[in-house]
Design a protein around this nucleic acid. Structure first.
Length: 852
RNA sequence: GCGGGUGUGGUGGAACUGGUAGACACGCUAGAUUUAGGAUCUAGUGCCGAGAGGCGUGGGGGUUCGAGUCCCUUCACCCGCACCA
């Protein structure tokens, strides 16, 4: 054994051995309990970043721990390989997206292997493989067949200069990122998945997922946004049309004083009176340019325009003017809102601005509202007034009664609305899964026959960044024949949102080479659900909701028997770092800064905020350098020790040194004591007090580390506990007389650290004389007997302030503890001249003496 | 704006069900030692105070024998918001 710990050398050795032996390949084995551990797969950007290092280090600890606990652990890795960056690289550097992506995958695979992560690499998959996406196309066809995939018009960001669709990310201050021209909203025919059909089920299951963080479930519930209410039809005066509204407050119907329509509402054209057309058109044009999220915020100035038309309130026959409002969205509800200014803040603001009447119909219990004196809407409950036969009802009962009344008269019905919208899945881009549809002039949209799958993404293609999707310009791809009538036809050139690929990769891992369908149902039945899913909190809603939806789709298509894909979810925090900028050159990488100054212009660098590490802000640390300098074990240990996984991790390079130092200490601990413990026998029955104390700590540490890993993933405190044990072993001064206790202690350190720093521990385990790998061992057990203490330290307070500490036998009763506490010299000092009113005893912990 | 989080020493963080606030580590200070090594070892290190002691978990208020933890209120920061992945 070498005197010095040389991480780079031993890590290379063990990684070579792992590559040759592939110890983490698994197959189904009904005789062993399975454990499916999954970390969110990466986008192959080319380099791993600290977020990956953290995510995969966390996962690897759990994978290695579960194997030692006897589970058959599935721990796969793959690549979310489609996406915009590959296409951007093609536009900017002329590289082909496929080549760029493959190269990046190779680089990142090497980096992940360099970290010593225990994956079953045989199951590796990349979503850009036709063998993967062909099954996605198949599932799409079956969804299309059942009406779960459909086309409708939707607005996209459009750059008139580049004549191309822009992602939200490509829009900077309402302008195109490439040409800086103003972006407009354009209506295009788009593919949607009917996730709204599953809204109720997705919502209901959130009540049955105890393995998920409550915060994530809450976010998903809010995203689905179920609201119970009522649809009401308003006839339009002088027209045959009616306007349907959705409201959660039918009890306020008598307070409606006007109607607000979304600018995109289909009736706008029909209703608007000729003399107001110009004004209405101008208003629609203005609203279109604004981001919907912005225009519906409470802060945004409420604006509208009168159409000149009126509708009729079905309960009292009143004529209500019809306006367009910038705060009404076509995508939510029916795109029309009955306006009740007295009881809705947005309507109130609108009414005050356009001088429309306010009518109070709900009176709260603690004040009297009047339309003239109100400064904001009363949105709470109360008693119904000015509502004819409903007067005097409380508003909750009123909701029901008014709904019943409308239903009887056939002008309304109880209804449920969701905030959730159908999933827009088509993208006007090249680097994605082709949507398998053919457009025929005679037959319309025709699905590609399943036997013709996959529709392969062509590779002979040019990228300019202008003129829309490159696929649409490739005649050899576009031109085809109709599968139904054999006449010339055109292929769909849109591709899928990359969220589609990531919605089922975890199912494919169960049988990655299955060639007769998306998955082998038996393999899925064995491995799924994922027992532990780990990934960034930023995926709390979209990815995790789409994956749940897709699982239910595959279930309903009869492909799998599974309701929910992820049993337990751990959402890790982000890795953050302070952004730094030069007034001249903008954001700077750490290496572009020397002594607080910009290397280029010597200007003083301005520190920004702590934000998520991102290339655009240049506040990134390249894990490669870290690994090259300290080794993978130190990099892993540091990310795990710096913070508990669910919290954001603020990057601080200095802590790395400490972790490296600790591993050197562990190495020395073994090296220095090797001769002493090599021939140590069993632990003796009668131990000295010091040996007993060390042994007690050994077993308490086993318990602590086990519970920290298994229950809460609090690896930082697990590591701290082992550090404390190492400190105690170093300070143990009976090493020569109690070698068996010393050996047990040292071996425990090595075994407990194995999931965290596997290379080092395997190496030390070998030096400790074990022929078998640590992986063949069982996770250590703790011995309650060895943990028991003979004395306890009791804190003594006087009026809640600590005044002393006493040591008592572990079996002392309350009386004895109280006597010992009152006897303590410093405590006695504080009791002098005062009378004891009460003594509170917390067994095993504390005595509080209350004096007056 | 809506939704979800976070806030504790100079720094990262610890604290079981309301019971010693600051474990462990970084940094810093002093000393020792050395075959000068990304060294190691010993002691110290929340703030104020000579000390006794007092003060301290973003701010303000409350409940309690006792509050980082529970309640009310307020501030600051971070993440997501449907075409980034």
């Amino acid at each position: 054994m070498q005197e010095r710990y040389n991480p780079l050398e031993i890590e290379q050795l063990w990684q070579e051995r792992w590559a040759a032996e592939q110890p983490w390949r698994v197959s189904e084995d009904a005789s062993v309990p399975k454990y499916y551990l999954l970390e969110m797969f990466p986008y192959p950007s080319g380099r791993i970043h600290m977020g990956h290092v953290r995510n995969y280090s966390i996962g690897d600890v759990v994978a290695r721990y579960k194997r030692l606990k006897g589970f058959n652990v599935l721990h796969p890795m793959g690549w979310d390989a489609f996406g915009m960056p590959a296409e951007n690289a093609a536009i900017q550097h002329g590289t082909h997206p496929a080549a760029w992506t493959r190269e990046n995958i190779d680089k990142m695979r090497t980096q992940l292997k360099r970290m010593g992560l225990s994956y079953d690499w045989e199951r590796e998959l990349a979503t850009c493989d036709a063998d993967y996406y062909r099954w996605e196309q198949l599932i799409f066809l079956r969804m299309f067949d059942r009406g779960l995939a459909y086309k409708k018009s939707a607005a996209v960001n459009w750059c008139p200069e580049c004549e191309t669709v822009l992602a939200n990310e490509q829009v900077e201050d309402d302008c195109c990122w490439r040409c800086d021209n103003r972006v407009v909203q354009k209506e295009l025919d788009q593919w949607f998945f009917k996730i709204t059909d599953y809204a109720e089920e997705l919502l209901a299951w959130t009540e049955k997922m105890p393995g998920w963080p409550e915060s994530v479930l809450t976010m998903q519930r809010n995203w689905i946004g179920k609201s119970v209410g009522c649809e009401i039809d308003f006839a339009v005066a002088g027209h045959s049309d009616t306007i349907r509204v959705f409201t959660t407050r039918p009890d306020t119907l008598f307070g409606a004083t006007f109607m607000s329509l979304a600018p995109e509402h289909p009736l706008v054209d029909v209703l608007t009176v000729p003399e107001r057309r110009a004004e209405v058109a101008a208003f629609i044009e203005k609203v279109r340019a604004i981001d919907p999220a912005q225009r519906t915020s409470d802060d945004y100035e409420k604006e509208g325009v009168f159409t000149g038309a009126y509708c009729i309130n079905p309960v009292n026959g009143e004529q209500l003017p019809i306006y367009l409002g910038n705060f009404v969205l076509m995508a939510y509800g029916t795109g029309a809102v009955m306006a009740v200014p007295a009881h809705d803040q947005r309507d109130f603001a609108f009414a005050r601005k356009y001088d429309l009447p306010v009518r109070v119909v709900i009176q709260p219990s603690n004040e009297i509202l009047t339309a003239e004196t109100m400064t904001e809407a009363w949105e709470g409950s109360g008693t119904m007034v000015h509502s004819d036969q409903f007067d005097g009802l409380d508003s909750e009962t009123g909701k029901q009664k008014v709904t019943e009344h409308l239903e009887e008269r056939g002008v309304g019905k109880a209804s449920v609305n969701y905030r959730l919208r159908d999933w827009l899945v088509s993208r006007q881009r090249y680097w994605g899964t082709p949507i398998p549809i053919i457009y025929c002039d005679a037959c319309g949209p025709v699905p590609v026959p399943e036997a013709d799958l996959p529709v392969t993404l062509p590779t002979d293609i040019a990228f300019s960044g202008e003129g829309g999707s490159p696929l649409a310009k490739l005649e050899s791809f576009v031109n085809t024949t109709c599968p139904q009538c054999a006449n010339p036809a055109r292929r769909e050139t849109d591709t899928f949102d990359t969220f589609v690929e990531s919605s089922w990769y975890f199912l494919r891992y169960a049988s990655p080479d299955w060639s007769t369908g998306p998955v082998d149902a038996e393999a899925v039945a064995y491995w799924l659900p994922v027992d532990q899913y780990i990934g960034g909190v930023e995926h709390a809603v979209m990815h995790l909701l789409y994956a749940r939806f897709w699982t239910k789709i595959m279930r309903d298509l009869g492909m799998i028997d599974l309701d929910e894909p992820f049993q337990n979810l751990l959402t890790q925090g982000m890795v953050c770092m302070e952004t730094k900028a030069c007034p001249e050159h903008g954001w700077l990488y750490p290496e572009e800064i020397a002594e607080g100054r910009c290397r280029q212009c010597q200007a003083e660098v301005v520190a920004g905020r702590n934000e998520k590490m991102s290339k655009s802000k240049k506040n990134v640390i390249d894990p490669d350098g870290l690994i090259k300098r300290y080794g993978a074990d130190t990099a892993r240990l540091f990310t795990l020790f710096a913070a508990p996984p669910e919290k954001d991790l603020e990057w601080n390079e200095q802590g790395v040194e400490g972790c490296s130092r600790f591993l050197h200490r562990v190495w020395r601990l073994v090296y220095d004591n090797l001769a002493l413990i090599t021939d140590a026998g069993d632990v003796a029955a009668d131990l000295s007090p010091a040996a007993k104390t060390l042994r007690r700590q050994v077993h308490r540490t086993i318990k602590k580390v086990t519970e920290d890993i298994d229950g809460s993933f609090h690896f930082n405190t697990a590591i701290a506990a082992v550090m404390e044990l190492v400190n105690s072993i170093s300070a143990f001064d009976e090493k020569g007389t109690a070698p068996a206790v010393l050996r047990e202690a040292i071996e425990t350190v090595v075994r407990l650290l194995a999931p965290f720093v596997p290379h080092l521990c395997e190496e030390l385990w070998q030096h400790l004389g074990h022929a078998q790998s640590l992986e063949q061992t069982e996770w250590p057990h703790w011995d309650e007997l060895a943990m028991a203490a003979e004395t306890l330290l009791i804190v003594v307070q006087v009026n809640g302030k600590v005044r002393g500490k006493v040591t008592v036998p572990a079996d002392a009763d309350d009386q004895a503890v109280e006597a010992a506490a009152l006897n303590d010299a410093n405590v006695a000092r504080f009791l002098e001249g005062k009378s004891v009113r009460k003594v509170i005893i917390v067994p095993g912990r504390l005595v509080n003496v209350v004096v007056g």
